[in-house]
């Protein structure tokens, strides 16, 4: 059960290999990709930054919570940092469970909690030239004012 931060591109197959378990009847994975738009703005690239030490601590806490809550047989997740281009994988989550219900639910739980709790930040670089740290808008900011909190 491990969460880690990676400065290198995510290799989903080698990640998925750690999920193998003889009692598993279901494997669910989620991939988060860099898309070319957000809230009506054309996005050129994304920059991710993490406080790696605490990100891995908190991420592993989430994995442990999911494992207990959904009776997982295996779970792993990895989040990229660095400057990512459109189409690159920003995050990968994978779980194995006896049945599909808990597998789907756990995968959703893990990505939702990772987004809400782990100290990772995302800066959007727009095609129009501006950039903004997502969720960090304050009154009076220009580009960030229109950047939404939950749509990534």
């Amino acid at each position: 059960m491990a969460f880690r931060i990676s400065a290198e591109p995510i290799q989903p197959q080698s990640q998925a290999d750690v999920l193998q378990h003889p009692a598993a009847g279901a494997c669910a994975t989620f991939e988060g990709w860099v898309r070319d738009h957000n809230e009506g703005q054309a996005v050129a690239s994304l920059e991710y930054e993490a406080y790696a030490q605490l990100a891995e601590t908190e991420g592993n806490r989430i994995m442990a919570e999911a494992t207990e809550k959904f009776e997982l047989l295996a779970a792993a997740a990895v989040h990229r940092v660095g400057h990512l281009q459109i189409g690159e994988m920003a995050v990968w989550v994978g779980v194995a469970a006896a049945h599909r219900g808990p597998a789907f639910d756990a995968c959703r739980f893990i990505i939702d909690e990772l987004k809400a709790r782990v100290p990772i930040w995302k800066k959007e670089h727009y095609v129009a030239g501006a950039s903004a740290w997502i969720n960090c808008a304050t009154k009076g900011d220009f580009a960030a004012d229109t950047a939404p909190p939950e749509n990534s």
Binding site: L54, H79, C136
Partner: peptide, 25 residues
């Protein structure tokens, strides 16, 4: 290296990180 609730008392030698709203995923 661990979250602390505000106002978070500090002691000599502590290592602090202020954490802006997060946006992973």
């Amino acid at each position: 290296g661990e979250f602390q609730p505000w106002p978070a008392p500090v002691e000599d030698g502590d290592e602090l990180v202020f954490i802006p709203p997060v946006a992973g995923g």
